[in-house]
Design a binder for these strands. Sequence first.
DNA 1: TTTAAATAAGATAAATATATCCGAATTAAA
DNA 2: TTTAATTCGGATATATTTATCTTATTTAAA
Lengths: 144, 144
Amino acid sequence: MFSKACEYAIKACIFVAKSSMQNNRVTPKQIAEEINSPVAFTAKIMQELVKSDLVDSYRGAYGGFEIDKAKIDQISLSKIVKVIDGEKLYDGCGLGLDVCNENHPCPVHYQYKTIREDLKQLLDSTNLKQLALGIENGLSYLKT
Amino acid sequence: MFSKACEYAIKACIFVAKSSMQNNRVTPKQIAEEINSPVAFTAKIMQELVKSDLVDSYRGAYGGFEIDKAKIDQISLSKIVKVIDGEKLYDGCGLGLDVCNENHPCPVHYQYKTIREDLKQLLDSTNLKQLALGIENGLSYLKT
DNA sequence: TTTAAATAAGATAAATATATCCGAATTAAA
DNA sequence: TTTAATTCGGATATATTTATCTTATTTAAA
């Protein structure tokens, strides 16, 4: 469904959001420990998230990553997924046809469309604040 | 969502099913033309489908691939997907946790579960006969 | 001003997925 | 029995994704 990079990105964002709510900047090392991911690869992904303006970074001593508290509930999962995996999940054909629409549907076009709309709905309506609170309250987990 | 190999497999199966309903065996070359896929890679995928008993193959002159007519409506998309992509889409965690369940849910566990059940429902309830008829009747297409 | 801690950027490596190629075995028909 | 057409299996090649490493730059505090 999502690439590994995207899975890491989502989990990293949730952890950074949670930390930012507690006024803590975090380093790639801390993130990787918290979400059980390879440090260097995680750092690369963080760079993309920074470039795309979803996360803020601060260099030098006492630096790290954070998310503007006021923005935490404005960042939906769909924004993260689009930055890392692109729009494919959003508008690609289930069977990979370059052109697939009502005029020229693939064999599973209509059924797949429903699934995709549901997924879109899920990603659009879920934001980092909700997820960070879930972690904070021990209702969900970022690693096993 | 699906790997490319799986997309090819699904489309190939639909074409083989349609051909078998018309009492025609088909070769990898014909399949690849019909679904717009690389010939040799398609042939490899057909081998897997044969080994998994979803498709029958016949060697030598006048050989090729076919599906037992009586089985065409017994082959669901889920069978094909499981053979090529495995069970991950069916039971994997949306965020890649090794263990993810009600007792230890990832942050999107419940929402993702709904999507997955819908997808499962779609794959389980759609069979090759339905899809082959759609192609035969010009209601859907295997390539653009 | 020096130092230690941190991100940024680019090169490189490893693993996986996608794709090709070729020789061996099989088979129906001529 | 020979031939041509076909699948099978394994080796190889290419592309993409995942992951690591190294150097440069930045920055706060001592």
